[in-house]
């Protein structure tokens, strides 16, 4: 997650002070990625150094200081919005890693692993769906959009596990067939 671009995106609407940025960020992202205030100030320091934000002239310094985005900051933000997010090489995720290593290993009960992972993912999916059932589409849009994203990712994970199971079964059958033929 890019804290840098997220802060620019919030400042693009209105100037804000550090704590306000933290609150706006968490509100817009339904609290999915809690930020600590220290992280906000460190990032603001770097953004200021790079000329992407500036402190509004004021008597107050420190936490009460208000920050605004610069023209250069807006350019960088537009560039971020305009560039599709790439994941090349793919982000490392533990489930993929675990199943690939299990499939490559000897004496590993891959189908038991797949079944257990699928059950856990389905339970998570059910939990997310219960939240979605209760979510108010008018008042809680960021929360609902976040839930949709997590639900579709979990559902894709289950589809992938199903596919792994089928391919591994196919491999096992081919091996058995090969052994018979020899």
């Amino acid at each position: 997650m890019s804290v840098r671009n997220s802060l620019l995106a919030i400042l693009a609407s209105d100037p804000a002070h550090g704590y306000g940025l933290k609150s706006s960020f968490e509100e817009s992202t339904a609290g999915a990625w809690p930020l600590n205030v220290g992280q906000v100030y460190t990032t603001l320091g770097r953004l200021e150094r790079d000329g992407l934000v500036q402190a509004e002239p004021s008597e107050e310094e420190g936490p009460r200081q208000t920050w605004r985005i610069t023209d250069l900051g807006r350019e960088v933000l537009e560039e971020w919005y305009a560039s599709p997010v790439t994941s090349d090489p793919p982000a490392r995720d533990e489930l993929t890693l675990k199943v690939l290593l299990a499939a490559a290993g000897d004496d590993v009960d891959v189908s038991a692993i797949i079944h257990k992972e699928r059950t856990a993912t389905m339970e998570r999916l059910q939990q997310l769906t219960r939240h979605k059932q209760k979510a108010d589409p008018d008042k809680e849009l960021p929360w609902l959009l976040l839930l949709d994203a997590l639900i579709l990712k979990a559902s894709a994970e289950i589809n992938w596990l199903d596919l792994c199971e089928e391919r591994l079964e196919h491999r096992a059958q081919s091996k058995d067939g090969g052994a018979d033929g020899r």
Binding site: H115, T119, A120, T121, M122, E123, L125, L128
Partner: peptide, 30 residues
């Protein structure tokens, strides 16, 4: 799977048999 998740219980059939349920430790809740 996303539609199955609306259910109270999700059962898997494989080769005509229900796959035995396993205990899955729930990951920390969102």
């Amino acid at each position: 799977a996303a539609h199955a998740a609306w259910a109270d219980r999700v059962l898997y059939l494989r080769d005509g048999l229900l796959v035995a349920p396993v205990e899955a430790a729930l990951p920390s809740s969102l």
